[in-house]
């Protein structure tokens, strides 16, 4: 009884006192022939005390909290799916439940293979926009597509203000590396590295959700 009282009391205070936030990092290394490596990292370590407490609960404010098994299950599914996707190889994952940092990476033969992954992920989410990446070696450009979905904005507004807080301080970062030099970028928030080999774009999650900023970017490469 005492232990339960302690757990609930600590939980109550932890939930109340720590604000949630997370970072998503999308990193692509693109070779001249269109093949490359993609790595997606979800870093929730800034909220780890809150997450450690939350994961002891089934749900908070009606939202289900995934357990460690749920997350393991998700990874198993994702890897199974990636293994079945043509052109995808060298699948790697890391799970750090102490710091709540999770990564998934793989090599691809062409960006089309990556689009297929996204297509399956996005399927049934009320959108038809499946193209995320395109690479045109003859025209020398790489494009990150992104369409502001009204649905996401609407879903966000449907959340209670306490639940929206989870996006405060959250960010989405894209890093793209090329073997050719970068000539220009279309997204004004993106930065080109001094060595011209990489492009960096970091946007806070709220701006992305509300459509104030986006991650769409056309990166022109030198011929």
């Amino acid at each position: 009884m005492l232990k339960r009282a302690l757990v609930y009391f600590t939980l109550f205070l932890c939930i109340s006192l720590s604000a949630g936030c997370f970072d998503i990092l999308e990193e692509i290394q693109l070779n001249k022939d269109g093949s490359g490596t993609i790595m997606v990292t979800l870093n929730m370590s800034k909220s780890k005390t809150k997450l450690a407490s939350l994961m002891l609960l089934d749900s908070v404010n009606g939202h289900k909290i995934p357990s460690e098994e749920d997350i393991n299950e998700f990874f198993k599914d994702a890897i199974y799916h990636l293994e079945k996707t043509p052109g995808i190889s060298n699948i790697k994952k890391t799970k750090d439940f102490s710091n709540y940092v999770f990564t998934l990476s793989c090599d691809f033969n062409s960006v089309e293979n990556v689009n297929i992954i996204f297509k399956d992920l996005i399927k049934n989410k009320g959108t038809n926009n499946y193209t995320n990446l395109s690479y045109n070696p003859s025209a020398h450009y790489f494009k990150r597509h992104f369409t502001q979905e009204e649905l996401i904005k609407k879903s966000f507004y449907k959340l209670k203000s306490e639940d929206r807080k989870v996006f405060d301080g959250a960010s989405y970062t894209c890093i793209y590396r090329f073997q050719d030099k970068v000539r220009a970028v279309s997204n004004t928030d993106a930065k080109i590295a001094p060595n011209k080999g990489a492009v960096f774009l970091k946007i806070d999650a709220l701006s992305l959700i509300l459509g104030e900023k986006n991650i769409q970017n056309k990166i022109e490469l030198t011929k």
């Binding site: 302690l6 009391f9 600590t10 205070l13 932890c14 006192l17 720590s18 970072d23 990092l25 870093n43 370590s45 800034k46 780890k48 005390t49 710091n99 940092v101 890093i175 590396r177 930065k191 590295a193 001094p194 060595n195 080999g197 990489a198 492009v199 960096f200």
Partner: peptide, 27 residues
């Protein structure tokens, strides 16, 4: 502590451990 990233000029990054304060009860 939490994990964050530090980027160099070419946007190569490394994981770094940073700290922040949180209000928690003692028992």
């Amino acid at each position: 502590t939490y994990t964050d990233y530090e980027y160099d000029a070419d946007f190569n990054y490394k994981e770094v451990e940073k700290t922040k304060t949180e209000t928690i009860p003692d028992f």
